[in-house]
């Protein structure tokens, strides 16, 4: 069972308290109704599914109930870092090469 750091609670808590909520940094258009079919496909259906670093959303369901973002390595399953919803995608990751 993983330990995940909630950026709101500022605590590492067991995985059981959290729910994954899919890939992060997928912006919902401000002009949703005007999106083309292609843009909507990219927004709703297409996900990166990387081998390695993934940016994803989690919710501290059984804690503060906040949604936040996390950087996880899908190979080692390790959390690199977590940050609050709305914060920009981090440009530098601690302890990750490249």
């Amino acid at each position: 069972m993983l330990l995940i750091r909630c950026p709101y609670c500022q605590e590492e808590r067991p995985e059981l308290e959290f729910r994954n909520a899919g890939e992060a940094h997928i912006a919902r258009s401000a002009n949703m109704a005007g999106e083309t079919d292609d843009d909507f496909e990219k927004f709703f259906f297409i996900r990166s599914n990387p081998k390695g670093i993934i940016y994803e959303r989690w919710r501290h369901m059984h804690g503060c109930a906040r949604f936040f973002n996390a950087v996880r390595d899908t190979v080692t399953d390790k959390f690199v870092m977590t940050y609050k919803a709305g914060e920009p995608k981090p440009s530098k990751l601690p302890g990750v090469a490249k």
């Binding site: 919902r28 959303r57 919710r59 906040r66 949604f67 919803a85 709305g86």
Partner: peptide, 13 residues
């Protein structure tokens, strides 16, 4: 409830 919270917290904060 989760769906509402998700939109409130992340899309329409």
């Amino acid at each position: 409830m989760n769906h509402m919270e998700d939109y409130l917290q992340t899309e329409f904060p």
